[in-house]
Simulated assay, not measured.
Amino acid sequence: MNDDLIRSRLTNLLEKTASAENLSGGGYWVGDKAEERRVLDDWKTGRLSWKMVRRAAKLGLEALDNGDHEAALEFAWMSTSYYIEVLENRVRPSDLAELGRPAKKRGLKPKNKLPG
């Protein structure tokens, strides 16, 4: 994958994850039960992974700017993996089942079909 394609992918992911900018980092003091529960909720819903998409995309763009193609490619894969993880957390099992069924037949029914 060339640098332009990596930059395009990372920039796209960075733009998509603008809402992650204000998310907390996911840390808490041991013993702070309320904050621990909030972090666990953020983890279960994919918010922390959403933040990691953005962080990996930023680091990948920095690597590209510094001429480090290999690191940029690695961050692109990391960012994409986190992005997929987030989407998989948000998709219902019924949506996934629907992907395994073919589309219904389309078109007009034949008018001159003989009975029987």
Rank of each mutant, 00 (worst) to 15 (best):
L73W: 15
A18F: 11
N2A: 06
D3S: 13
V39C: 02
R47E: 12
G25Y: 11
N2E: 14
L114H: 03
E35M: 11
I6C: 00
W29Y: 09
G107M: 07
P110M: 06
W43Y: 10
A71V: 13
D4G: 14
A63W: 01
R37T: 09
S81T: 14
G25S: 13
H69A: 11
N89R: 10
S79T: 07
K109L: 12
A71K: 13
N89S: 10
R55S: 08
K109R: 14
L64V: 07
T80H: 10
K105F: 07
V86D: 04
G46L: 01
A57S: 15
A56C: 12
G116I: 03
V86T: 05
R54C: 01
P102S: 05
N66C: 05
R101M: 06
V53K: 03
K111G: 06
A72P: 02
N22W: 09
V39E: 05
E74S: 09
E15V: 13
R47C: 00
L108T: 13
P102Y: 01
K105C: 00
E36S: 08
A63V: 02
T45Q: 08
I6G: 04
E98A: 15
R101C: 02
K104N: 06
E36Y: 06
D41F: 00
G107L: 05
A18Q: 15
R90Y: 02
R38P: 02
N66L: 08
A20R: 07
R47W: 01
N112F: 08
L59N: 10
M1W: 05
